[in-house]
Amino acid sequence: VTTYKLVINGKTLKGETTTKAVDAETAEKAFKQYANDNGVDGVWTYDDATKTFTVTEMV
């Protein structure tokens, strides 16, 4: 189990959260659900070296 981080660069919501998951795919599903629940829709990137997902909403 690995800890993954999500950085949110939203128009109205900004911040970070973490989740523990067995792999990046599982973490991504959890983060996308979290973003969807919070009304964040944007471009996703993932950095495997730092285990960090970033979602950026276009203005």
Rank of each mutant, 00 (worst) to 15 (best):
45 T>I: 09
7 V>M: 07
14 K>N: 10
53 F>H: 02
57 E>I: 10
54 T>W: 08
48 D>G: 07
57 E>L: 07
38 N>R: 14
8 I>R: 01
41 D>Y: 15
57 E>P: 08
34 Y>T: 03
59 V>L: 14
55 V>G: 00
24 A>D: 05
42 G>R: 01
56 T>C: 05
13 L>T: 08
41 D>I: 14
45 T>F: 08
25 E>T: 11
32 K>I: 07
1 V>F: 13
7 V>I: 12
43 V>Q: 09
40 V>Y: 06
36 N>M: 13
59 V>R: 09
59 V>F: 13
50 T>S: 10
56 T>G: 03
59 V>A: 12
56 T>Q: 07
23 D>S: 11
30 A>C: 09
52 T>N: 02
13 L>V: 12
54 T>K: 05
1 V>Y: 11
9 N>Y: 15
39 G>W: 05
49 A>C: 07
58 M>C: 12
51 K>T: 03
34 Y>L: 05
31 F>R: 00
9 N>L: 14
38 N>F: 15
59 V>Q: 13
22 V>D: 10
36 N>I: 15
49 A>N: 08
1 V>W: 14
41 D>F: 14
56 T>P: 01
20 K>S: 14
36 N>C: 12
2 T>F: 15
9 N>R: 12
24 A>H: 12
29 K>M: 10
50 T>L: 07
35 A>E: 01
37 D>E: 12
14 K>W: 12
42 G>P: 01
4 Y>T: 00
47 D>K: 03
36 N>W: 14
39 G>A: 07
17 T>I: 14
4 Y>W: 07
45 T>E: 10
29 K>C: 05
13 L>D: 05
34 Y>P: 00
48 D>E: 13
31 F>C: 02
52 T>R: 03
5 K>F: 13
51 K>Q: 10
53 F>R: 00
20 K>W: 15
50 T>E: 05
34 Y>E: 02
1 V>G: 08
14 K>M: 10
5 K>M: 07
56 T>K: 05
48 D>F: 08
38 N>S: 08
7 V>E: 04
33 Q>M: 12
8 I>V: 09
48 D>T: 08
35 A>N: 04
26 T>F: 07
15 G>V: 15
2 T>H: 15
47 D>L: 04
5 K>I: 12
31 F>E: 00
28 E>C: 12
21 A>I: 02
23 D>C: 05
7 V>L: 10
8 I>A: 03
17 T>A: 14
45 T>D: 07
6 L>M: 05
42 G>V: 02
54 T>H: 06
58 M>I: 14
41 D>K: 13
33 Q>P: 02
4 Y>R: 00
46 Y>P: 00
15 G>K: 13
35 A>S: 05
40 V>I: 15
43 V>T: 10
8 I>Q: 02
4 Y>D: 00
